[in-house]
Amino acid sequence: MVQTPMTRERLFALREEVARLEGSSVAAARQEALAAESGHSRKAEDQRFPLGIAALDHALEGGLPLNGMSEIRSQAMRDATAATGFALALAALLQRKSEEDRSPVLWISDTVTSMETGIPYALGLADFGLKPERFLHAAPRGLEEALWLAETAVESGAFSVSILEVKGNPAHFGLTESRRLGLRAKAAGRPLLIVRQSGEEEASSAPFRFLVEPAPATSRFLPDRSMLGGSIGNPVFRLTLEKSRNPAPVSLLLEWNPHDRQFLPAREPEHARSARKLPAHSGPRLPAPANRPDRPQEVGPVLALDRAS
């Protein structure tokens, strides 16, 4: 294809614009290459925090974004603690990283989730690798207050990570609000984790969304490096990277070692059945209209998710 200098220029400008909107490192890398070509280099704006698992870090393009929002989702309320655990494991990692500046972790809880699965427990946090004296728990009365809290916390820059727990897909926490939070996090250069308990996939401005499911824990090691049968050791999460720039979702088992505060890859357990309940029949589901016709089923690959609320 023949490109005039004009069109080439415009194409670059558009690419740059898109990259700026998306904040992607791939685009930034390309941009850098182009910039190097034209004589000046630009530093990558993104800050990534590698999780120490090669496959995951590759899918995350270097690691968890430190200046932005990420979403962690659990499918049902009974998996809520798994999502909590993964979010807090990330918090412990980030806290370990910011050991010297001693900034605390903020957990903004959701009232209903607190009633259903309890509130974070300081001794349990200590066992999980976090420092309970550097943990603040906020109990706002409603979503509006929670969003304000998250925004203020990210803006203040006082927390190594702020975690906002949401139940389900509330109508007042849609794309607009998540975009606003994401922009605030990006502007402040602070990580923000959204923990969506028993929520559906929904369009959001977070570049990454994890689905966390519980998995059988590892066994405890005996001093001679053999496993103690029937014992419950480090927690294991079944992690699916649902949303990323990668077209194929990455799914893997992660073990969290609270003592060393690091993630380890875990093997697929033999004796456990999958937590994911598959439908008994694989055929198309019949709609069950109560008083209105069912939504027409989408055809083809999903490009954008509808609002779940």
């Binding site: 004296e133 943990f135 603040l136 728990h137 009365r141 207050e145 809290l149 203040s156 006082a158 927390f159």
Partner: peptide, 20 residues
Amino acid sequence: LAGFVDRVSARLGADCLQSF
């Protein structure tokens, strides 16, 4: 951090933000 705690306590009440 102190500024954040003060703001939250002023707006949402002192009981909203808790430490263990």
